[in-house]
Amino acid sequence: MTEKNVNSNNKNIQTNENPFMKYLRKDRLPNIFCAGCGNGIVMNIFFKGMESADIDFDTLALVSGIGCSSRIPGYVKCDSLHTTHGRAITFATGLKVGNPDLNVVVFTGDGDAASIGGNHLIHGARKNINITVICVNNNIYGMTGGQISPTSPKGSFGTTAPYGARDKPFNLAELVSTAGATYVSRWTTVHPLQLSKSIKKALLNPGFSFVEIVSQCPTYFGRKNKLRTPVDMINAFKENSANIRKAAKMDEEELVGKIVVGEYVNNSRKELTENVRDLSVEQCCRNLAIKSAYQDKFED
């Protein structure tokens, strides 16, 4: 991290400001998130994970699609691409291959990543592109006002499911594991320590990393589903979470309504950017061109 990004450290001590405030665009605050929204917790945990992974803030590029969690990057004082609905992983892929020195992180939600962007999600995992995807899964479309999403539990209510959701929801952590990601975990906003460790691992994993954060949307999911306050939702996460190791021993009935948390995948295989670079080295004995749009002469 360079000096200019920590220049407000002294001020922090005087004002008791959140230590991560230095990463934010203060002139954009307050943010648009509802009271009790999980996005604030997610941001805090992310910065903690980022610091413990020792990521140079200047190399951080945040990419997002459309939805509440996709608004997170815009508040962070780094390079960010707030893109179109569902497509963040494709933009992130171009950014990462275009400059492998960047640390590219995608913030996305359940609707963005698993519905409109589902195809890009599984192909990103398949190609094992070295980016980290943080999926804030609140089981509902918040930005548009409470419609059910592909992760809404069977029987849950949304404005487009006034009689309850009838479709089988996606299990995102399992979906992305099967698609070939090399780091996958799921936690909830009541697991900050595990989550920040998980984010650290995800950022350091040289491949496609997927961290699913089950998060609360008290405004829409809570109100529609008899979990009226953020506290009700947090309590529900606590009660319903089951660690993946314990869950392995539980039968189907016991698992109903459970949020299976933990590390799903942590392995390694060659990632996309490396493959692209190797091909260049093989074919012309040099690394990939970087920032060459600023040149007017090119090597043959």
Partner: peptide, 14 residues
């Protein structure tokens, strides 16, 4: 995905 990737690559400086 193709056009998303090239927009990302353009911002990476290519």
């Amino acid at each position: 995905g193709a056009i998303g990737a090239i927009i990302g690559a353009s911002w990476s400086g290519l």
